[in-house]
């Protein structure tokens, strides 16, 4: 029963490994970026679950509440999400340039093209 309190971490680990698998095993660059996003989201969920306090409410101070969840992870993740989408946009832009330069977005085909003189 004491292990049950850790299930939130296991969800995070599962999502993280799923994203990791997509990044490692797939050749398609767009799919790799989606995998990175899933990985990123799992880290977000990890931080937010750490910040949760049993019985707490959102950290907006009001008169009727005494217990609040930890605001610090919220701040970190809030900025991280927006930075994440900005870097994703940069990654997608790179993918488009790669497509224009090589004519493909499959990693192994690009490697094969590189080896040819």
């Amino acid at each position: 029963m004491s292990l049950f309190g850790l299930y939130n971490y296991w969800i995070v680990v599962f999502l993280m490994m799923a994203g990791f698998y997509v990044v490692v095993a797939h050749e398609n660059l767009i799919k790799k970026i989606v995998g990175l996003n899933v990985f990123q989201a799992s880290v977000f969920i990890l931080y937010i679950t750490v910040g949760k306090v049993q019985g707490g409410t959102a950290p907006i101070i009001g008169e009727n509440f005494t217990i609040y969840s930890n605001p610090l992870p919220h701040v970190l993740i809030l900025t991280a999400i927006v930075v994440g989408v900005a870097t994703t946009a940069l990654g997608l832009a790179l993918v488009i340039r790669i497509k224009e330069a090589y004519g493909t977005i499959e990693d192994d085909e690009i490697a094969a093209l590189e080896e040819e003189p």
């Binding site: 959102a58 907006i60 809030l78 900025t79 927006v82 989408v85």
Partner: peptide, 12 residues
């Protein structure tokens, strides 16, 4: 300042 929100959300 008073409810959920801020620069990041508003910009998006």
């Amino acid at each position: 300042d008073f409810g959920p929100g801020g620069g990041f959300q508003a910009g998006v």
